[in-house]
Computed example of a mutant assay.
Amino acid sequence: MATGILSVGLHLTGHAVLSGILLALASALWLALAAAFASHLVRDPARWESEADTPPALAAVAATTVLGTRFSLFGWQTLAEALLALAVLVWPVLLVEAVRHWEPRMPGGVFLCCVATEGLAVQAATLASADGASWLGHTGMVLFWGGLVLYVLALFHFDLRQLATGAGDQWIAGGALAISALAASELVTTGLWNDDDTGALRSASVLLLTLDVAWYVVLVVAEVWWPRPRYDIRRWSTAFPMGMTAAAALSVGTAADAPWLRGPGQVLLWIAVAVWLAVLVGALRSLGPLGPHGPLGSLRSLRSLRSLRSRAPR
């Protein structure tokens, strides 16, 4: 998700080479994760079902729509349509399972129900503009408003203490609004609506972007006030909302006829790239010999576990 949206943002700012490199990387990662997802379904259905019950499973849908949107912008409409069809097939199953297992005081992953739904809206609107398929645009409109409803419902389940204790996925609270703003701006560009509807979508895109930026500021302040410098895999859920905020600012600037947003959008994009690189370095270090997931780190963890067992009362 993070890699794909940065590819989109770099495409919007004219950095074709960097965008292409990240697109290739995002495609490779998507294929690897899709293979693992399918393998769990075939070899260990019980594990697959337990993973599908959680909101983070919806990241599969969101990642597919982000990648499909980037392919559509690249001009590969057939591939983008295939990815949209795949995402649509998986989305209702994972959405129902995730919502059924909502609990009070959940981490930021609860907002992925909105992110996945708005991702479908973004890709449907992008394809509607490229193919002239009005039914896709109207479907995207329904998904857009549905995603906002899911955001409000998820907000009631979000644990605000995650601002101080979250490991990175608390940023999805803002990122969900960013992808909603992006969906509204993409729907504007389809040209399918009358003046009133177009005006409402433009206003919605600006309002959603404003709320997203407010979340962005709050989350940055929380990171400074309660620093969490250690790497966690959920930090990828920080890079994605940052990149999505940048892409939303660039897209809303075009749809709402506010070219001044391009400058802030570019600044936010390079901040997101820097965070993405930092998270990548952390991930590589965690897989190194001394990292917690490397061979020596695993051996150290095993020795610690044995030590604890030996000290346990019998």
Rank of each mutant, 00 (worst) to 15 (best):
P107G: 04
A154R: 00
L148C: 01
V61L: 01
E97T: 10
Q162F: 02
G166D: 03
F158E: 03
R105V: 08
A63V: 02
W91I: 00
E49G: 02
T69M: 07
E118P: 07
F158A: 09
S50G: 01
A164M: 08
T78I: 01
V142D: 14
P92S: 04
Q162L: 09
A98I: 03
A85I: 05
H101N: 15
L153G: 07
V96Q: 14
W171G: 03
L153K: 00
E49L: 12
A82S: 05
A125E: 06
G175W: 04
T126R: 14
W145R: 14
L83Q: 09
P56N: 07
A60L: 11
C113F: 01
G147L: 04
M106C: 02
C113W: 00
A173M: 09
T54I: 00
P104Y: 05
G168S: 02
L148K: 02
P92H: 03
L155H: 11
A87V: 06
F144T: 07
E49N: 09
L84M: 04
A133G: 01
G146Q: 10
T64P: 11
V99R: 15
V96N: 00
Q77D: 11
A176W: 12
A178I: 07
G109N: 10
A82W: 11
V61A: 03
D53I: 02
L143Q: 06
E51A: 12
L127T: 03
A128N: 05
W102Y: 11
V61E: 04
L143T: 12
D44I: 09
T69Y: 10
A82G: 05
T117G: 07
C113N: 12
G147F: 04
G168Q: 03
E81F: 01
T139W: 12
C113P: 05
A87D: 08
V88G: 01
G140H: 09
F158W: 15
A125S: 12
G132D: 04
L94N: 03
E81G: 13
L89K: 13
Q77R: 11
T64C: 09
P56I: 02
A130Q: 15
F158G: 07
R43Q: 13
G75K: 15
W48M: 08
A85T: 10
P104C: 04
T126M: 12
A128M: 02
A116V: 06
D169E: 12
V93C: 06
W171M: 10
T126D: 11
A59N: 13
A128F: 05
L143S: 08
R43K: 14
G132F: 10
A178P: 06
T78E: 15
D53A: 14
H157Q: 13
P107C: 01
S72E: 12
T165R: 13
L86M: 11
A46F: 03
W102F: 15
